[in-house]
Design a protein around this nucleic acid. Structure first.
Length: 526
RNA sequence: GGCGGGGUAGCUCAGUGGUAGAGCAGAGGAAUCAUAAUCCUUGUGUCGCCGGUUCAAAUCCGGCCCUCGCUACCA
C-alpha cells in the first residue's frame, strides 16, 4: 500500500489557537482524508512548538511554570483540532522527552558532518523588539545612535557565543534540489521567491542561544539551548521515531510527502530544513506547500479591529462540516483568501443547502413516497442517464483527484458541485413527478440514476464534510465498508430493492439574523 | 532600491494572437418533486494608461501608473 505522510506546522504555544490554525489543520485534514479514501496508508501529524524565549515569557506573564503553561496551550490546540474534526494520527509536542533525544541526535549528526562550529553571534540588537537587525535595517541619527528604521527603537551592538550551522555550504545543493524536484516548493510563485533568496548566497546560521533556558540543551554544551527552528523542524522526524531510522514508521513514511505550512515560514521549511536533513544524512522531504492567510473584508483579523472570526464562532454559526467547507471553498489554497460571514453564508446556502442538500432531499423524498422506500429498480438506461452516471463516476474522481494533487481544494469542490448541478438539471428535464403519472417505470429509472449520483457525491465529499457525507451515504444504504473511492463508479452501483431509511435534511439553509448579520445567526434545523 | 506576481462585468476570478467568459449578486420567465429550494434567459465591460509590432492584441514588445509578495536568525 502506498504511504502518504502529511504534516502541519506545529503551532507556537504562546497563545490560543485562531482561525489561521484551524485553516491549516483543516487543509491538512482534507488532504489526509482524501488520500486515505483514495487507497493510501496515511500518517498525519500536527502538534505544538513549545520551546523558546517567547513561551518562557508568556508563561512568566501568566504566572505559570513553562511546562504547565504549554500543557494548557497544547490542550487548547488539540481541542481545536478535535472540534474541527481533524483526523490527525499523532499530536506531537516538542517538550516530549522523545523529541529532545531526537533533536540532540540530529544535532550530533550535523556536528559529525562538520557543519556545526562555535563562534560569536554579533549584531545590532533592539531590546524592545527582541530582534537583531542588519545594517540595512538601521538609520543612524545625527547624534551617532542607531535605530531600527521600521520600529524606531534604539539598537546596541551585542555579541553572544553561539554555535553556527554551515548553511553557506548548502547553497548549491539546495539550488540543485529545487532544480531536480520542481514541485519541492509550492505554489510555484513561492518557489521563485525561495530560489532567488538562495541565489543571493546563504550565510551560516546561528543555531544556539545562551540567553534563556526553555529549550533543548545542546549536547556537550549545556549552557547552549538549540535555536528553536532546529528544535521545531525536527518534530517531523521525531514523530516517526527518529533517531531510530529503522523504526517502522520512519521506514514507512519518511520522506514526508508534504509539509503544509503558512507562507510566513516557507524559508525555514524550504531552505533550513532540507539543509539540516542533508547534513544529517537523512533524505529530504518531497514537498513544502505554503498556504496563504485568511483576511476578512480585505484586512488582517485583529482584536483591535474587532473583526476576528474565531473557529468557535464558525462552528456555532454554521456547524463543523459547513465551516470546513466554507474555509476550503472560499480561498484559493496557496493565496490569501477573504472570508466574511456574508460570503460564507452565501456559499454554504448556494452550494451545500440549495444545490447539493436539496438535490439529496428532493430525490430521496420522491423515492420514499413513490418507490416503497427502496432503491428503485431501473429499466433500460437512456443516453442522458448514462451521461450523468459517467459524469458522476470515474470522471468526477479523476478530475477531483487532479485538483488534490495540486492541493487546489476549491477547484476540487467546483468539480463535484458541477455534478450536483447537472443532477438538478437532469431532474428538471426528466420531471419524475410527471413520469409518476405517465410512465412509472421510467420514473423509477430516473430516481435510480439520481440515487446513484447521490451515492457518488456522498463518497467524494467525505474529505470536506465527513459527518454530513456519512448521513448521505446512510440514506442511500451504502455499507460502512463500501465508502472509499474504490467504490466510486458503476461497478459498485446501488442494488435495486435495498430498503432505505426515512430521508432527513443534511445541509440546512443558514438563515441570517438581519438584526445582527455579523454575529449569531442560527441555522434552521431541518 | 533589487527580483517576482497582479491590475478583465457590481463581487471573486478564468481566459497568452482571430468576433470578450464562468460562478455569485441583480432582472425576467418556466416548473412545483424538494431546504421560498430547482431550471432557463439576461452581461454594449475604455480587458490599468500611452505607444509599437501584426491583416488581427486582453493575449507579443517598450514606457508609465497602481497594487501585492520576497529581499535571513521573534516564530
Amino acid at each position: 500500500m502506498k504511504s502518504f505522510y502529511i504534516s502541519t506546522a506545529i503551532s507556537y504555544a504562546n497563545a490560543a489557537p485562531h482561525i489561521g490554525h484551524a485553516y491549516e489543520a483543516i487543509g491538512a485534514d482534507v488532504m489526509a482524508r482524501f488520500k486515505r479514501l483514495d487507497g493510501y496508508d496515511v500518517y498525519f501529524v500536527t502538534g505544538t512548538d513549545e520551546h523558546g524565549q517567547k513561551v518562557e515569557k508568556s508563561a512568566q506573564l501568566a504566572g505559570k511554570k513553562p511546562q504547565q503553561f504549554v500543557d494548557e496551550v497544547a490542550a487548547l490546540f488539540e481541542g481545536m483540532c478535535r472540534s474541527m474534526n481533524v483526523s490527525y494520527d499523532q499530536f506531537i509536542r516538542t517538550t516530549a522527552e522523545s523529541h529532545k533525544k531526537s533533536c540532540q541526535a540530529i544535532w550530533k549528526k550535523m556536528e559529525e558532518k562538520g557543519d556545526i562550529y562555535l563562534n560569536k553571534y554579533a549584531g545590532w540588537y533592539s531590546t524592545r523588539d527582541e530582534a537583531f537587525y542588519t545594517e540595512a535595517d538601521l538609520t543612524t541619527l545625527p547624534n551617532g545612535k542607531k535605530i531600527s528604521t521600521e520600529t524606531k527603537t534604539e539598537v546596541e551592538w551585542m555579541e553572544e557565543e553561539s554555535y553556527f550551522f554551515r548553511l553557506s555550504a548548502y547553497t548549491d545543493k539546495l539550488l540543485a534540489l529545487y532544480e531536480q524536484q520542481p514541485d519541492f516548493v509550492q505554489p510555484g510563485f513561492r518557489k521563485n521567491e525561495v530560489v532567488s533568496f538562495v541565489k543571493q548566497g546563504l550565510r551560516d546560521l546561528s543555531v544556539s542561544r545562551t540567553t534563556f533556558d526553555w529549550g533543548v540543551p545542546v549536547p556537550g554544551a549545556l549552557k547552549h539551548i538549540m535555536y528553536v527552528w532546529v528544535d521545531a523542524l525536527t518534530n517531523y522526524i521525531t514523530a516517526l521515531g527518529y533517531p531510530d531510522t529503522n523504526a517502522e514508521k520512519f521506514k514507512k513514511y519518511w520522506p514526508c510527502d508534504v509539509h503544509l505550512i503558512g507562507k510566513d515560514i516557507i524559508r525555514f521549511h524550504a531552505i533550513y530544513w532540507p539543509a539540516f536533513l542533508m547534513s544529517a544524512g537523512i533524505p529530504v522531504q518531497k514537498r513544502v506547500f505554503g498556504h496563504g492567510f485568511l483576511l476578512t473584508e480585505g484586512e488582517k483579523m485583529s482584536k483591535s479591529l474587532g473583526n476576528v472570526i474565531s473557529p468557535e464562532n464558525l462552528i456555532v454559526k454554521y456547524g463543523v462540516d459547513q465551516s470546513r467547507y466554507a474555509l476550503m471553498r472560499e480561498a484559493t489554497f496557496g493565496q490569501d483568501g477573504d472570508i466574511s460571514y456574508t460570503l460564507m453564508t452565501t456559499r454554504i446556502n448556494a452550494e451545500l443547502a440549495n444545490n447539493l442538500g436539496n438535490l439529496v432531499q428532493r430525490t430521496l423524498s420522491m423515492i420514499a413516497k413513490n418507490c416503497d422506500a427502496k432503491v428503485p429498480t431501473p429499466g433500460i438506461l437512456e443516453d442522458v442517464d448514462k451521461a450523468l452516471l459517467q459524469k458522476a463516476g470515474q470522471a468526477m474522481l479523476v478530475a477531483v483527484r487532479a485538483e488534490f494533487e495540486k492541493m487546489q481544494f476549491s477547484k476540487a469542490i467546483e468539480e463535484f458541485i458541477s455534478v450536483s448541478h447537472a443532477a438538478n438539471l437532469y431532474i428538471d428535464e426528466q420531471a419524475p413527478w410527471t413520469l409518476k403519472k405517465t410512465d412509472p417505470a421510467r420514473m423509477a429509472t430516473v430516481l435510480y440514476v439520481l440515487a446513484e449520483v447521490i451515492r457518488n457525491l456522498g463518497l467524494i465529499i467525505q474529505p470536506f464534510t465527513p459527518v454530513a457525507a456519512q448521513k448521505i451515504l446512510d440514506q442511500v444504504a451504502v455499507a460502512a465498508n463500501e465508502r472509499d473511492f474504490g467504490f466510486i463508479g458503476e461497478a459498485h452501483a446501488l442494488k435495486a430493492g435495498m430498503p432505505l431509511p426515512a430521508p432527513s435534511g443534511v445541509f440546512p439553509r443558514i438563515i441570517e439574523d438581519t438584526a445582527n448579520s455579523s454575529g449569531s445567526a442560527a441555522a434552521k434545523t431541518a
